[in-house]
Design a protein around this nucleic acid. Structure first.
Lengths: 151, 151
DNA sequence: TTTATACACGATAAAAAATATAGACATTTT
DNA sequence: AAAATGTCTATATTTTTTATCGTGTATAAA
């Protein structure tokens, strides 16, 4: 299950992407994003900060300040967002590349049967999730998809 | 990430499966399983009880009692174990069949862009994980795999 | 230069989930 | 009857999730 925090993050990114697609995009305040995404403002604040530190979104301070998308939707990887907001996506810490951690009780990783079977699952899963971006989410919202039944 | 509880469950199942593969299998006490799987005995107790209620393992009471595997390893689905021990495996509650729950703030599931993109991921993921069983874990521990390099 | 409006950042807190532990009881074999 | 074993309910501890609050800093407009 993805966390509520991740849902807020994705909703916020969708709001910012929709704004970015407008003829004259404007920076959106946290409050505006919170309203449009139906997220708690003070919580969203922290989420947006994390997204900013990862340079996914940009912020400007002061009057008329706010947030805007800083990357092209096609460059915003869903799996990267998951890692950023929810942490490692590997089913086992010993399978994570960036958050690798050996199991306390592990005697031999090479022969661990749990590790082996989940490694298989994980590689296949990565293949799918690593290919998805924010752009895919925007597309899947198209009216065309529903009419033509492309999805 | 799968939980520690799930790791204990899988380790216990492996211990029981290994025992079941012996010429003369015996019922193993909770204590024996705990030792062989390096799991906390009192915690494992609850896990085994859940597995028993799901009829994955069988238990006998009294002296010389203990636990044994009640299903063929090939019939013990990894995804079912995940659902049993860790709960729903869907990335969103609104995508789970058995633990379906509508999102509080959801206005329209049919057009939800978050739901749509994770639905794609989920179906592909299910295809993989639903096909795995305890038997696959036993196989992947074979020496042959490592020598021949089948894995 | 003041003031209003915004983001930035660290501290704290409440709720939920994960990870156990303990005690009393029931069942079976010897 | 006694010893060994699983059963079941209650409780406890720790970690994670989900926020909220207060204060500081930057910017632009009046």
């Amino acid at each position: 299950m993805i966390t509520q925090k991740m849902k807020y993050a994705l909703k916020a990114l969708l709001v910012l992407a929709d704004e970015a697609a407008k003829p004259v995009p404007e920076a959106l305040t946290i409050e505006a994003i919170a309203k449009r995404s139906d997220s708690p403002k003070r919580f969203l604040e922290h989420i947006l900060l994390e997204l900013r530190n990862a340079q996914v979104v940009a912020s400007t301070r002061g009057r008329a300040g706010g947030y805007s998308l800083h990357m092209a939707p096609a460059d915003v990887s869903i799996s990267e967002m998951l890692r950023l907001i929810d942490g490692p996506i590997a089913p086992l810490a010993c399978l994570s590349r960036r958050a690798y951690q050996r199991c306390d009780d592990c005697t031999d990783e090479a022969t661990c049967r749990i590790r082996k079977v989940f490694a298989e699952v994980f590689w296949s899963y990565l293949l799918i999730i690593d290919s998805l971006t924010l752009a895919d989410m925007l597309r899947s919202g198209d009216v065309a998809d529903q009419v033509i039944g492309k999805a």
